[in-house]
């Protein structure tokens, strides 16, 4: 089975908000680029599918040179090929992104399974997988937490509110990966990391149409309030906390 994982490196989502600023459509800051958490889940599923089917997977990213961190990680985890669609860093319209990723996937010869993260960890729109599936005319399973090769298709577990559901899907198909115990990205072996650093990353010229939504500003809303110390013994503190929560979040609690 052949898989393509679409990976995206983003500014470290664990960085303090104050360390990131927004300028001319770009999020900037003295913060490292890391592989997006859900793209990590997608990459893990790609590795698992390739291993289970004795197939292979490729990795594609869209953006500037900052995207190479994620692609190197994919290579270290065994990607047969890594490609970067070269466009300027920053926000990209999801439909534009889906079109360019589709063209890149076609250039790589296509795949049986296309894997996305459920949403990017930075712009957070969560629609690229769906748009890609639409462009490719393929079925989409969103929020996948586990996937197993089953015959010529896949047995898939997907996240739903309060639980999960399982089902089967024939390939080719598109999956968007979510976090779960089965999609936690493994650590690459050091020898593979060392080898990955020597492997080439294929560059494909990208073209932005300029159409679609464009981000012009970004601001964090201030929601924090000064805290209040609840005095008394442990029981009094617990009761005080419960009262505060009832006051702050209408509808919770119920009885006295």
């Amino acid at each position: 089975m052949r898989a393509i994982a679409f990976v995206k490196s983003i500014l470290d989502p664990e960085a303090p908000p104050g360390a990131i600023r927004f300028d001319a459509g770009k999020a900037l800051g003295d913060v490292p680029q890391v592989l997006g958490p859900y793209e990590g889940n997608a990459l893990e599923l790609a590795v698992q599918i390739a291993e289970a089917s004795q197939g292979e997977f490729r990795a594609v990213a869209l953006g500037g040179p900052e995207q190479e961190a994620g692609l190197r990680k994919a290579l270290a985890l065994g990607a047969a090929q890594a490609m970067r669609v070269d466009v300027p860093s920053g926000f990209h319209d999801p439909l534009d992104t889906a079109r360019q990723l589709k063209a890149a996937a076609d250039a790589l010869g296509g795949a049986d399974v296309y894997l996305f993260g459920r949403q990017a960890g930075d712009w957070d729109q969560g629609v690229t997988a769906g748009l890609f599936a639409g462009l490719a005319g393929l079925p989409l399973v969103p929020l996948v937490q586990a996937a197993e090769v089953a015959g010529a298709g896949l047995k898939v577990r997907r996240e739903i509110a309060g639980g999960y559901e399982e089902g089967e899907i024939a390939v080719p198909c598109v999956l968007s990966a979510s976090n779960g115990p089965g999609t936690l990205l493994r650590l690459p072996k050091v020898k593979d990391v060392m080898l990955a650093n020597r492997k080439p990353i294929e560059l494909r010229a990208g073209a932005q149409s300029g159409a679609g939504f464009r981000v012009s500003d970004l601001k964090a809303s201030v929601t924090s309030r000064a805290g209040r110390r609840i005095e008394g013994d442990l029981k009094a503190q617990a009761e005080g906390l419960a009262q505060e929560l009832r006051r702050a979040i209408p509808g919770i609690g119920g009885g006295a």
Binding site: D12, P16, V31, L187
Partner: peptide, 18 residues
């Protein structure tokens, strides 16, 4: 923690400090 060192130069994940 090791991944934190690799990605952000320190092992304290989730810290809101610089």
């Amino acid at each position: 923690a090791v991944q934190g060192i690799e990605e952000r130069g320190h092992p304290f994940r989730g810290s809101q400090a610089s």
